[in-house]
Design a protein around this nucleic acid. Structure first.
Lengths: 334, 334
DNA sequence: TTGAAAGCGGTACCAA
DNA sequence: TTGGTACCGCTTTCAA
């Protein structure tokens, strides 16, 4: 068992002090070319890698970011995590990923734990609406950014989608197709309330009225989407279109429609949200409101890094715009 | 900006030495009840949390594990990562997740980087077949376990699926349904070679011969699955069934079948592998060889932790068995 | 240009 | 039962 070389081993082998070695590694101070070469050579020979714990102890960065996400097994979040990690890698950061299951206790637990581990900052994709613990962190100057969630009443940096616009686009698109009776599937979280607000706005502008069937559901799963769609489809006011607030829910809607023998898009149009892998593999492929997931991941990573480096002094909110991605689950009524 | 309390602050406030504080925290040595209470109280008041970097420097664990995975956006891996993280959380470990894209350079880079960050061990879901760097780590006594990949010629701990059995089950099931002409979709990696070996075994036992159309594909994506299926379907030897080595590929096969106007399962049966979310949402829902993903995640986490703690001295290989999950993409020919 | 030494925040051995 | 202190591996003054 070869033990890893330390800065002392390098110093000894190079006949210099550890201070000198430290300086050539960090390119601080003035060291002669000759010494530099010598030290680099020894570093090479010994395969020396600085211990990051030790430098972190001295106040340096750990180059590690905590990513708190509801559920990495959810395609939207796994795609988002992927894009964040990609950018992190380019910038030299690692991600420790924590699944919160939308539970505030889990979020708080992870927050405390990772703080002990000296992560450089946090990216929150979890999205609660009571952020006391997060507020504490911010007060302590710990860099925190949110992504894919919006908290208009909370002073925190982040990148989010214009959810209002997303809902507006969904309704406009469906209305453009001639639909009058559109039901909505959504879990009761802020972003969905925004989407619905945008949705209603478009409805009003076109003198349509909002669904009679609407009710919030408990979780964003295929099964939940299926169950509520069954309900809508057997109501006295059968919709000609459904706006599901994410692709998973929309996939459930598709399944329910099939079980009820109503063909999509002929008798029922379904529009999803997110444009994840899901939208491309269900049958029929899903028309959906696309979130620029790649861009969101990159932006939020850039944001947190600029906060860590101290460049980003003012609060900033980056809003990305959705766009409708047409596929085959929607149909013209006219 | 309130600075975090250190062990010195606690010691001072409690009128004891830092040695004493350390002892009550770690429950080592003999400390009077009274002192313990006092110290705990101060810890509470100051909201003191030990800095894990500092203890890591003294040789303690960081309670962090590196997870190297090809692509977290792939549903199989995101579900696997989820189950590993779940178990990690129960055991008090965090996961730093790295996407390797099946690239050996990326894997090596991450390995070196995370070692610098003093992770307690590595879980590799990546699966390369030349593991020199990994071998080095093992020599240095760094705990490393593999999951969902098998390396029979490599002495490393891990938990894997019995891929041979999976292929055997797939073939047996399809043969039981009366299929004679089964094509295979697979990327050229060890586990798929094993699956195909098992597949051929079952074929032989039933006096069937292996597909004439077979060729390995370059990547495991929906698109690749679709492309190769188009090819198979327009060959001179049209299959009545397809065995896709993962659900994504199977989803692609479904799409190609639809585009060619061949209905599934009436004219073509398709069987997948993994039993991910994908299998439940495509149309028709996929019959697939199910991997016990939850169990794999738990087992590999338990394994790495027991290696870290030193309990697991001998090399161990845990093999889990697949099972066929029947849905609607396969059909009886008879 | 280089090095000695004082930390960073803990752990653990040895005395008291 | 408690405390003094050396040390983990590195950074950073401050002198030389």
């Amino acid at each position: 068992m070869k033990v890893n070389a330390t800065i002392y081993d390098v110093a000894k082998a190079a006949n210099v002090s550890i201070a000198t070695v430290s300086k050539v590694i960090n390119e601080t101070g003035h060291i002669s070319e000759k010494t530099k070469r010598k030290v680099h050579q020894i570093i090479e020979e010994l395969d020396y890698k600085p211990n990051m714990m030790a430098s972190a102890l001295m106040g340096k960065q750990t180059k590690t970011i905590g990513l708190l996400i509801p559920d990495i097994a959810n395609p939207f979040f796994s795609e988002l995590a992927r894009s964040i990690e990609d950018r992190g890698q380019e910038l030299g950061y690692n991600l420790v990923i924590c699944n919160t299951d939308y539970k505030i206790e889990k979020e708080n637990k992870y927050l405390a734990l990772l703080k002990q581990k000296s992560v450089d900052g946090f990216i929150l994709a979890s999205g609660f609406e009571h952020l006391e613990e997060v507020e504490k962190l911010i007060k302590e100057k710990t860099p925190v950014a949110i992504v894919a969630r919006d908290f208009p009443m909370f002073s925190i940096n982040g990148v989010a989608l214009d959810d209002f616009m997303g809902g507006y686009q969904a309704a406009s698109y469906l209305i453009g197709l001639g639909h009058e009776n559109i039901d909505v599937i959504a879990r009761d979280v802020w972003s969905n309330r925004e989407r619905i607000r945008g949705f209603k706005q478009a409805l009003e502008e076109n003198n349509r009225k909002f669904s009679m069937n609407f009710e919030y559901i408990g979780e964003s799963t295929v099964e939940a989407g299926k169950a509520i769609t069954h309900k809508y489809l057997s109501s006295s006011n059968i919709p000609t279109a459904i706006f599901a607030c994410n692709d998973l829910l929309a996939a459930g809607a598709l399944q329910a429609a099939k079980e009820n023998g109503v063909s999509v898009p002929e008798r029922l149009s379904v529009i999803g949200f997110d444009n994840t892998l899901i939208a491309r593999i269900v049958e029929p492929p899903l028309t959906t409101i696309g979130q620029p997931i790649q861009s969101m991941g990159k932006q939020v990573m850039d944001l947190i890094v600029s906060m860590i480096s101290g460049e980003q002094k003012e609060k900033i909110r980056i809003t990305l715009l959705p766009s409708v991605v047409e596929r085959e689950s929607t149909n013209n009524r006219m």
